[in-house]
């Protein structure tokens, strides 16, 4: 990876959100992945032998995985395989857990996000997150969207930014007459789209989604999936999902994680296979992947 001009500054002292300038990643990444015929897009994020521990518990072992620009990458696997843990390493959300410890590197445009001078606050302004359960703030719809830009010192026209974010999240038409009403008045699906709008209001580069549809009904799920397709033109999306059909429908690449039970009963997750989604679902390279996607376990 080129360490020079493509380096994104996520160190401390960096100013607020602002729109991040999309510098092209100049590195022509060695496509370590068994890719398709077309060359894979540039790598935005890359895990390099990532290991995660919670205290003595080894949660994730030796995961290496590239995330490509303007693609949707799905992380799938049975419960406890560490896929959410891996997702939370991309924006250092694991820092919030007192006992969590991360080894290995998470490279973002060539910068190791776990280097000592990296400020997780800056990281999260570039790499946004949508959670499993819709979690709007107990504030108005407007203030929910405006929260991120406000704390980031946004100086432009906030009204326009709120409208644009809601429009991009395909929610504006439904809420334009009640922007000052509580976000709790919205339905679950609307709340989740609000959370997506809130995440993109800070102009992130990457949006992480941790089972974003698991609390939604099928129609709301479909809307979110359509939205993800629209958003990938502007953002790089990584989604954790329990729903294999969802991974097959929306993602470009799929990483299958499995869990290994050690001698002491420890359940450690690891990456089994990572490939283009079509290949994972039609012609997986590993037996465990095939058994999982055909519903034999998980």
């Amino acid at each position: 990876m080129n360490e020079g001009e493509s380096r994104v500054d996520v160190t401390r002292e960096n100013e607020g959100t602002g729109a991040m300038t999309e510098e092209p990643t100049t590195a022509d990444h060695d496509d370590a992945v068994a890719g398709g015929d077309v060359p894979a897009p540039a790598v935005v994020l890359e895990l390099d032998r990532l290991n995660v521990f919670y205290g003595d518990f080894h949660a994730v072992r030796d995961v290496s995985l590239p995330i490509h620009e303007h693609e949707i990458t799905a992380l799938i696997g049975p419960s406890g395989c560490g896929k959410s843990t891996v997702l939370r390493c991309f924006n250092r959300m694991n820092d919030l857990i007192e006992t969590a410890r991360v080894e290995g590197a998470v490279n973002y445009h060539g910068v190791d996000l776990y280097a000592p001078d990296i400020d997780p606050v800056q990281v999260r302004r570039h790499i946004g997150m949508v959670f499993q359960k819709p979690n709007p703030f107990p504030k108005s719809i407007y203030d929910n969207i405006a929260y991120g830009p406000r704390i980031g010192g946004f100086s432009g026209n906030l009204d326009d930014l709120v409208e644009e974010s809601l429009t991009r999240a395909a929610l504006f038409d439904e809420v334009k007459d009640k922007l000052q009403e509580s976000a709790f008045a919205l339905s679950g699906g609307q709340q989740q789209r609000l959370c997506i709008a809130r995440a993109i209001a800070t102009s992130p580069d990457v949006v992480l989604m941790d089972e974003p549809c698991s609390a939604l009904d099928p129609i709301a799920t479909l809307r979110i999936e359509e939205l993800m397709q629209e958003l990938k033109d502007d953002y790089t999306i990584v989604i954790v999902t329990h729903n294999m059909q969802q991974a097959a429908r929306v993602s470009d690449r799929t990483a299958f994680f499995n869990v290994q039970v050690g001698e002491t009963g420890q359940r450690t997750g690891h990456l089994v296979e990572y490939d283009e989604t079509g290949k994972i679902f039609t012609n997986p390279g590993e037996r465990a992947t095939e058994e999982y996607i055909t519903g034999r376990f998980g």
Binding site: M93, V121, V123, G128, N135, Y147, I151, A199
Partner: peptide, 27 residues
Amino acid sequence: VPTAMREASYGLGAKRWHTSLRVVVPA
């Protein structure tokens, strides 16, 4: 106040005092 509320705030790049004063205290 649910942890999910704090995570939402931290996920948006909020510092601890932002999260405390603008999310947790109002909630």
